[in-house]
Design a protein around this nucleic acid. Sequence first.
DNA 1: ACTGGCACCTGGGCGC
DNA 2: TGCGCCCAGGTGCCAG
Length: 270
Amino acid sequence: MPELPEVETTRRGIEPHLLGRRVERVIVRDRRLRWPIPDDLDSRLSGQRIERVERRAKYLLLGAEAGTLIVHLGMSGSLRLVEGGLPARKHEHVDLLLDSGQALRYTDPRRFGAMLWSGDPLAHPLLVSLGPEPLGEDFDGERLYRLSRGRSMAVKPFIMDNAVVVGVGNIYATEALFAAGIDPRRAAGSVSRARYQRLAEEIRRVLAHAIERGGTTLRDFVGGDGQPGYFQQELFAYGRGGEFCKTCGSTLREVRLGQRASVYCGRCQR
DNA sequence: ACTGGCACCTGGGCGC
DNA sequence: TGCGCCCAGGTGCCAG
């Protein structure tokens, strides 16, 4: 489910309920996520006050004095605040009980997510090699151009590579390439500097816009405050294979690139 | 060093 | 109504 805008929407939704709160207890009902939730998470986190609620790529970082809880939502994960003691339903694997009487509840049907503990999260093996944030200052078209020279892979999986830039998943890669008029099948190394500059702009614009709108609602995604996002009806290409291009009216095509569905307009994207 | 492919897991939608 | 198949927002890891 969650791409970067959904993760950022979640971060903004939960932050006001967590900052300054103390974790009283961690209840793990099922520790079988992508990696097992550490056995000692409760002993490390209990009694700690949450001082920071940050995001790096699609990882949420809940910072306390003794260390940081790293949370990834995988493809189907979500975090929301519930009243402490609310009975857990299926797939509601973890609760952080807070001194406010609320609990931060982690739900993940597919269990592709992760919940890990680290004393230095940015140096954690999962985070240390990540590329720049797409909305930060280290990301621009020049970087895309430079890293793509000599690369034969298609431009779409290239911009989805976390070492190139983080946070560009299938939906927003599809939308940004449509907006930039670039054929997703084109070899990354064959895209000009000028077109990468346009693509970088579109990646930033699409992601920033989606964050403003509260993320894309796919199936049952809800932000930390329980409100659904409203970006979905604004999609130009993602999920619209076989439908009409909103720009030129021709039929959108669908192919698979890097094992992912990729929709594009054969007329608008070259 | 790159590249493509697979795996992890569950649920929803579709065709028969 | 039921069954089986295919697909899904991510990403680490493998072999070639």
